[in-house]
Each structure stands twice: as structure tokens, then as C-alpha cells.
């Protein structure tokens, strides 16, 4: 699956935290989700995303990079922050 971020009405970073306003809805991003948003200006395969995130954050504890990335991507899709191109 490939994903790309949806253009936001605004993006705010304060004290290391990120907030987005997408389609009139405010969404608070975790550090991982903010990194995913940053890396998806263009359509990108989730597998590639997982590799890039692992290179940045290291391997997650108790999970695989692919599982952790997939979970975060699912949440971002659910909140309308990302769109997918199956």
C-alpha cells in the first residue's frame, strides 16, 4: 500500500509537539506520526516508510517496524491525515 499526506489547513509545532488542522479537524500527532507526515509529501510505500522510520528511531521494542508503522498509518488514515493508493 502507498500513502500520501493530505494537505493541511495548518501545521503547528510547539515544544516538540505537532498539531495539524485537516479538513476542519485538529489532530495531535505523536513523534512517530509527525515523522510519517513529514515523509509522505509524495506517495510512498508503507514498507519503505517503515525502513526510513527504523533508520531514524531505531527498531521498536516488542514489535516490528512494519507493524508499528502500519498501526500508525492506519490511525492517520482514519483521521484523514493520510490518503492511500492501494
Amino acid at each position: 500500500m502507498r500513502v500520501q499526506r493530505v494537505p493541511a489547513d495548518d501545521l503547528l509545532v510547539r515544544d516538540g509537539e505537532t498539531a495539524l488542522l485537516v479538513d476542519g479537524m485538529a489532530v495531535r500527532l505523536s513523534e512517530l506520526s509527525a515523522a510519517i507526515y513529514d515523509l509522505t509529501e509524495e506517495m510512498v510505500e508503507v514498507e519503505r516508510l517503515a525502513r526510513e522510520l527504523e533508520a531514524h528511531f531505531g527498531a521498536p521494542e516488542g514489535s516490528t517496524s512494519m507493524d508499528a508503522t502500519g498501526h500508525a498509518v492506519t490511525e492517520l488514515l482514519r483521521h484523514g491525515v493520510l490518503r492511500s493508493d492501494p
Binding site: 503547528l12 510547539r14 495539524l20 485538529a26
Partner: peptide, 23 residues
Amino acid sequence: VMDALFAVVEQTSSLSWLDRPLH
């Protein structure tokens, strides 16, 4: 600031009409 923003943002009207609304 971020906790306050998310506490207040639900009680805004037409926020996204503004320029750089979250800022």
C-alpha cells in the same frame, strides 16, 4: 500551550477559515 489548544479548539467556530488558524 498544546494541551490548551486542544481543549479550546473544539470550542471554536469557523477556525479553518482563518489564515494559519492553529498559529
